[in-house]
């Protein structure tokens, strides 16, 4: 196995991108843009967590919103009920992640033994159930009307919040990257490729799938917490199918099983959503921007199941192989002639 090289070319590129992102709010002094990029980063975290399921383990969950929603509500409720401090914020994130972890563990244990279509359906139903509960439990959630709350004082400065989100994204990325390249991650990939065979090799695949779903759930809750703070508002929309669909679209369009792909997907979808809904004021058809994504998504599933990043990666490695062959070819010729 390859030793991870810290200074590989792609790592350098990533490092430069991160630096650019850190510098960005100081260079471009635009509040809307900062908010937009913050949003992109938050959904990037969510989409990466979804990639652990779909891209690395081959599990299709239609209930990912439930973990996102749990995070969002935990943070919102705690910040509005207790003092609005950084301490409470951090505790609320941890509590959200804990609850999401426990829930995803239970749900996973009960449902992951089922075939994929049952699982997809069941996660959809359970998440739907949670949405119904949230809508009825108005004393706590205020239902669809939702409620506003105060964010910790430091986050009044949008740039600081942006930097916090960016830092968390980088941490999540590194942690997940390590996770998927660990021996455990390899097993997950084996499950995706051929669950039956992995099972027959003696791995308890259910156990691995549950781990994947817990990791994904916990990270999704983190994204939800950040999302709530970014809006300083929460309502039941954080638990809807739309959130799951966003994560799904980002992962598929960006490229499953790459971690970078979902981030790219988040950039594409969030910014397109932003600009298209801007256009909608003049052209009402853009109010239905989701149709375009739906169609692109369908085409992607059929024609580019690897998404943007996956397709580029394949093309790149093909190109590299070709180039290597070209490099090798004249060499062998010269050898022959020297004979």
């Amino acid at each position: 196995m390859n030793k991870p090289i810290l200074l590989s070319r792609s790592n350098i590129i990533l490092f430069i991108i991160v630096l650019a992102l850190v510098a960005f709010p100081f260079v471009m002094d635009s509040r809307t843009l900062t908010i937009l990029v913050t949003q992109i980063l938050i959904f990037g975290i969510l989409a990466m967590s979804y990639d652990i399921l779909l891209g690395y383990t081959g599990i299709v969950s239609f209930g990912h919103a439930m973990f996102f929603g749990i995070g969002a509500y935990c943070t919102a409720i705690m910040l509005s009920d207790f003092e609005s401090t950084i301490g409470v914020f951090i505790v609320s994130i941890i509590v959200g992640m804990l609850i999401a972890g426990i829930l995803s563990f239970i749900v996973g244990l009960l449902t992951l033994r089922l075939k994929s279509h049952f699982f997809a359906m069941l996660t959809m139903a359970i998440s739907g159930l949670l949405l119904v509960v949230a809508e009825k439990w108005r004393s706590v959630t205020k239902g669809n009307d939702g409620f506003t709350f105060k964010a910790p004082e430091v986050f009044k400065d949008r740039v600081i919040f942006y930097l916090v989100v960016l830092a968390l994204l980088v941490i999540v990325f590194i942690v997940l990257k390590r996770f998927v390249s660990s021996p455990l991650g390899r097993v997950l990939i084996a499950v995706r490729e051929n669950e039956q065979r992995t099972k027959s090799l003696g791995f308890k695949t259910l156990y691995y799938k549950v781990i994947a779903s817990v990791v994904a759930g916990v990270i999704a809750a983190l994204a939800g917490s950040l999302y709530a703070v970014s809006l300083r508002f929460v309502n039941t929309s954080v638990l809807t199918m739309e959130i799951t669909l966003d994560a799904l679209l980002m992962t598929i369009i960006g490229g499953v099983g790459t971690l970078i792909g979902p981030l790219v997907g988040s950039v594409v979808i969030e910014s397109a959503q932003h600009y298209l809904s801007g256009l909608a004021r003049d052209f009402p058809i853009f109010e239905r921007w989701i149709i375009f994504f739906g169609i692109i998504y369908i085409l992607a599933v059929i024609f580019f199941p690897k998404g943007i990043v996956g397709t580029i990666q394949t093309k790149y490695s093909q190109w590299k192989i070709k180039r290597n062959q070209l490099d090798v070819a004249p060499l062998s010729k010269s050898k022959e002639s020297s004979k």
Binding site: G58, K115, H117, I302
Partner: peptide, 15 residues
């Protein structure tokens, strides 16, 4: 392809 089927029919639902 089970996974693709699930993904694509949900996308079509959305559309």
């Amino acid at each position: 392809n089970l996974v693709q089927q699930i993904l694509i029919t949900l996308g079509f639902m959305l559309v």
